[in-house]
Design a binder for these strands. Structure first.
Length: 923
RNA sequence: GCCGAAGUGGUGGAACUGGUAGACACGCAAGACUUAAAAUCUUGUGGGCGUUGAGUCCGUGCGGGUUCGAGUCCCGCCUUUGGCACCA
């Protein structure tokens, strides 16, 4: 019986697959390739839980399916092994992160192997391995040695730029750079000293150092990326985050903003992820417009997306950090304004967000002159204007912007309606519909026309120009951390210089302490003999962020063993784009954006062949935990059963789901579980203690983690795989619930019984299949193909069940049929399929089999039972030949006896016949 | 507030381009086997009315619309969920 044998079968094939290296993949230009990839895991200390494999099972099915179709399939796995948790653990326990990481990886590997995945382990990568991060550092140096040429719209070597500078200065250069650089001639360039040259070049490099306001987390002692900060708190740990000025490495992702946006059109990704990336990039079209200060040469430049409302501008607002602020302040207001700047600086990000409704600001005493109306307009300062976006200054149009409206209301500033259509005294009218009023030369125009007209006019007057702005910021790339890639640079007189390629990898040195210094230097700062170089130069004490290694690992898989290059051109080209990429939504704006950026950069250098790395993306849903709760009556050691708890004040507590059965607590085990509960009292109902239930994230602290190893021990990996697929569509999140697993297990037992009777006698015969049997199997082949192609794995499993139910009813034990079925099942339940395949007399593994083709002649029906409806309601069914024409069907239906009572003599208006589908009679 | 996704039996879900709603499975109920339990097998299972059986009405979050025909398309609402949130 299968239920006694599955462990033996699974162990047998696991060993055999490994011995025979059946999953080893080699480049083969004579076969079409298929690249199917999972987002590689961070090997955490708690191992895999049942949620992790969901995506892996799906990709493994696709990988095995594509192999059966003759594709050469690349299906690798590796580990995102650098990162914070290992380091936090090291700080707590003093164990080297390399050690704990290695242990965790071994644990993961074992668990993954138990699940029967067809990974080519010879290609495994670990981002913390020097042989891997040597190339991460190499790519960093490529970024450092490149600039973005806007004219050719791609990254180019920095040498070209230097050559151009020495020929023509920077007058012809159109580049992405940090700040606008004063123009210089070829002579100037020649006369600049080394330090000036390097500082200028840093402005152009794609990896560059910059003093910048960063998210500094004092508790973690590190800088965090925007996406690591949620609501002003660190995502990890939930500690407060403040703004701090620091010199950091940045990657110039903003140079790629437009291409990152455009590329989304050419890939098949979930709309939600595309939307998120679009929002994150945040492209907005508008204009830069200068307002001259009253009786001054100085200008205030603002960015607006609504130049049409310019005549409705009644005041200006600048961010507290705005550089002009100190000089433009009227002496009378200066004191107050300076106090305000100080106040704004000391407000943490969290306070600022929490107090959005608390509008603050000060009048600077300065005025600008309206470029079109000539009116004198006051300039205010407020922290509702963000320094980091646009120019850090805005023209306020209270009638048509709700933030300006609120500000005007609070400080009693005037308001002028310029677009008709709303009640602007009540609330700002922000719609782009309506006619311009009170607006001199644009009166009567539509919003769209007015926007265009104002920009043209501003360009004519030389006070402004069309401008596209992005929310996307250059990516901070320094972390004050130990467990990451060291920067392959050294500093001489505070100027960074790259290491030579042959000096790579720059290996992470041993450290005595992993504690952050707290001063903004990384822990490496304390490793003096590493950080300080004999010639007086020094290294960077920071390391790269977690996403560095994961931004290109999908390329390394194409040739993980290459010692001379990050990948050879042949292998890169052969495996090309990732055809299917599976992973969680949590990487929508982090990993997936950075990986696209790095890949586009490598594409510009001609190092990869596709500018979009991942063609098809699927986000697998989360498997949530199903927690159980017990309720302790406050101030006592008495626990009250779930349905009785309402009359008491109780504290809910998570309880280990392993000592709960069908929500009933095992009191004996509970007493043993924690010494505090040894003497606990219980108030029961029907002699049972019922627990509460909550569906939430699976985590150790909630005691709701289900380990796949336990499920596999009880039912086997095949059942586990089938069950995870059977739960529902792959993209959907769902709670783990073992109730249904029996059904899938039963199914495999039923499969087994098509080969063996209840006394374990082999019952397969070589007889010729009947029409019915052929129909069943060919129907299933067709459906399985179609469903895998659209990633509908749950319906595949249903269809296997239907097929087996039918074959069981038909008592079909025929080799010809069962052999086909074993192949169909093999991507989903590889172990049992492999066993049955070999029992059927095949000496080679089922992975070398050919996926069966279905033939229309076995499936085509000659008759169809037409549902006949009258006025859209199904009234009867009439069995008719499918060869009948629509006219003939109509005649047969109208004369049919069964329909008489419904027609009841009423004249028939119309008959709709859909061949092979339905007949509808309209009366 | 803005943007996106989704609401189908007691439960997970199916229904691909509008064409027999509830496939498949869980659960439940009844029965067979068994001293008994488990396992296995058989039958039933959206709701109401009716009933020996047939029958018949209602039913895919709610209200409207398009259509011979709507779970599916359109409009308006409600709920759940994910993301963004002073981005000018």
């Amino acid at each position: 019986m299968y239920d006694k044998k599955f462990t033996e079968i699974e162990n047998k094939w696991k060993t055999k697959w490994e011995e025979e290296k059946v999953f080893l993949t080699k480049t083969d230009v004579n076969r079409p390739k298929y690249y199917v990839l999972d987002m590689f895991p961070y090997p955490s200390g708690s191992g895999l839980h049942v949620g992790h494999p969901l995506g892996y099972v799906a990709t493994d099915i696709v990988a095995r399916y594509k192999r059966l179709q003759g594709f050469n399939v690349l299906h690798p796995m590796g580990y995102d092994a650098f990162g914070l948790p290992a380091e936090q653990y090291a700080i707590q326990t003093g164990q080297h992160p390399a050690m704990t990481t290695e242990n965790n990886i071994n644990q993961y590997r074992k668990q993954l192997e138990n699940l029967g995945f067809s990974f080519d382990w010879s290609r495994e990568v670990r981002t913390c391995n020097p042989e891997y991060y040597r190339w991460t550092q190499w790519i960093f140096l490529k970024l450092y040695n490149s600039w973005y040429n806007k004219t050719t719209d791609k990254a180019e070597a920095i040498e070209n730029l230097i050559t151009e500078f020495s020929k023509n200065g920077n007058r012809n250069i159109h580049a992405s750079c940090s700040e606008s650089i004063a123009s210089f001639s070829e002579n100037d360039w020649g006369n600049f000293d080394e330090s000036t040259k390097q500082k200028i070049l840093l402005n152009y490099r794609l990896a560059f150092l910059q003093e910048a306001t960063v998210n500094w987390c004092p508790m973690l002692g590190t800088v965090l990326a925007n996406e690591e900060v949620k609501d002003g708190l660190s995502e990890r740990g939930g500690y407060p985050v403040i703004k701090k000025q620091m010199r950091q490495w940045f990657l110039r992702i903003t140079a790629y903003a437009d291409r990152l946006l455009e590329g989304l059109e050419r890939i098949e990704w979930p709309v939600a992820v595309k939307e998120m990336q679009k929002n994150w990039i945040g492209r907005s079209e508008g204009a830069m417009i200068n307002f001259s200060f009253y009786k001054s040469e100085k200008k205030l430049t603002i960015f607006t997306t609504r130049p049409d409302t310019i005549l409705g501008c009644t005041f200006m607002v600048v961010a507290p950090e705005h550089e002009l602020l100190p000089e433009i302040c009227n002496p009378v207001n200066k004191r107050e304004v300076m106090d305000y700047i100080e106040y704004a600086r000391n407000r943490s990000e969290r306070e600022r967000i929490a107090e959005v409704k608390n509008i603050t600001g000060k009048f600077t005493g300065a005025f600008v002159v309206h470029p079109f109306s000539g009116e004198k307009i006051p300039v205010w300062v407020s922290d509702y204007v963000i320094f980091g976006y646009g120019t850090g200054a805005i023209m306020a149009v209270p009638a048509h912007d709700s933030r300006d409206h609120a500000f005007a209301k609070k400080f009693e500033l005037p308001l002028v309606e310029v677009v008709s259509g709303g009640d602007v005294f009540k609330e700002a009218y922000e719609a782009k519909e309506g006619t311009l009023i009170n607006s001199s030369f644009i009166n009567g125009m539509s919003v769209t026309d007015a926007i265009h007209c104002v920009i043209i006019k501003a360009e004519e007057k030389n006070i402004g120009f069309r401008k596209i702005n992005y929310k996307l910021r250059d990516a901070g790339f320094s972390r004050q951390r130990y467990w990451g890639e060291p920067f392959p640079v050294y500093y001489k007189n505070d100027i960074p210089y790259p290491l030579e390629e042959k000096e790579l990898p720059l290996v992470l040195p041993e450290a005595e302490s992993y504690q952050p210094t707290g001063t903004g230097e990384g822990p490496l700062f304390k490793v003096k003999d590493w950080i300080e170089l004999p010639d007086g130069c020094h290294r960077d004490s920071n390391t790269m962020p977690g996403w560095a290694g994961s931004s290109w690992y999908f390329i390394r898989y194409k040739e993980a063993s290459n010692k001379e290059a990050f990948v050879s051109p042949e292998n890169e080209k052969y495996w090309g784009q990732v055809d299917l990429y599976m992973g969680g939504t949590e990487h929508a704006t982090g990993h997936l954006l950075y990986a696209r950026f790095w890949n586009k950069f490598l594409y510009d250098l001609g190092l990869v062949s596709h500018d979009e790395p991942f063609y098809k993306l699927i986000n697998q849903g989360m498997i949530q935990g199903r927690s159980n709760l017990v309720y302790r009556i406050k101030g006592t050691n008495t626990f009250i059963s779930y349905y009785l708890r309402k009359d008491y004040k109780t504290t809910p507590m998570h309880v280990d789901i392993n000592i709960v059965n069908d929500d009933v607590l095992d009191i004996k085990e509970f007493r043993k579980w924690n010494p505090d509960f040894e003497k606990a009292e219980f108030i029961l109902e029907d002699g049972k203690y019922f627990c509460g239930v909550e569906v939430e994230k699976m985590s150790k602290s909630r005691f709701n983690v289900v380990n796949p190893d336990d499920v596999i021990a009880k039912y086997g990996a095949d059942t586990f795989r089938l069950y995870e697929m059977f739960l529902g569509p792959i993209e959907q999140s769902k709670p783990w619930n073992t109730h249904g697993i029996e059904g899938v297990f039963r199914f495999l037992k039923k499969v087994w019984r098509l080969f063996y009777d209840e006394n374990e006698n082999w019952i397969v015969v070589n007889d010729t299949p009947t029409e019915q049997e052929l129909k069943t199997i060919h129907k299933t082949i067709k459906k399985t193909r179609e469903d895998i192609e659209r990633y509908s794995f749950n319906t595949c499993v249903s269809n296997f069940m239907i097929c087996v139910n039918e074959l069981t009813d038909l008592k079909c034990y025929k080799k010809e049929i069962l052999e086909k079925f074993a192949i169909l099942l093999s991507p989903f339940a590889p172990f049992i399929s492999e066993e049955l395949w070999s029992l059927l007399g095949n000496s080679q593994s089922v992975i070398y089999a050919k996926f069966p083709e279905w033939e229309g002649k076995y499936i085509t029906e000659s008759f169809f039972e037409y549902p006949v409806s009258v006025n859209g309601k199904v009234r009867t069914k009439i069995n008719l030949s499918l060869s009948l024409s629509e006219k003939e069907i109509e005649e047969r239906v109208l004369t049919a006896e069964e329909l008489k009572k419904w027609l009841n003599g009423t004249p028939v208006k119309k008959v709709i016949v859909v061949k092979g589908r339905i007949v509808n009679v309209v009366v």
